[in-house]
């Protein structure tokens, strides 16, 4: 499979994830969409790593794994707290930080 096809898959996944962040109300779905975007980036890294026969891209993916794991752990903790506060996880409810 040529590199550009793999990259197109990665871009499509990224854009679908971005669309999820933009259009969905549920904060858990928003968080999962961000995970999907991270996965798209991972796919691009692995593709390039294979193309250039170089492990650096795979090390980068491992770093992203760590960041994603921490992000989900903290994000879920925050979501649980938010739910305790307002009994809802809709983005419309949480907009007190407006300018």
């Amino acid at each position: 499979m040529p590199l550009d096809h793999l990259l197109i898959v990665a871009f499509v996944l990224f854009v679908v994830g971005a669309a999820g962040v933009m259009v969905r109300r549920n904060l858990i779905v928003v968080l999962m969409s961000i995970e999907l975007m991270l996965n798209a980036v991972n796919l691009a890294f692995v593709s390039f790593s294979r193309q250039m026969v170089d492990h650096d891209g795979q090390v980068m993916v491992l770093m992203i794994f760590v960041v994603a794991a921490v992000e989900v752990a903290i994000g879920m903790a925050i979501l649980v707290n938010m739910y305790r506060q307002k009994r809802s996880l809709s983005v419309d409810v949480f907009h007190s930080m407006r300018g």
């Binding site: 499509v12 996944l13 679908v16 999820g20 999907l36």
Partner: peptide
């Protein structure tokens, strides 16, 4: 697999 991955992503949204 690529098609399945994209389909899964669309399903999420």
């Amino acid at each position: 697999f690529s098609g399945m991955a994209v389909a899964g992503g669309l399903g999420l949204v």
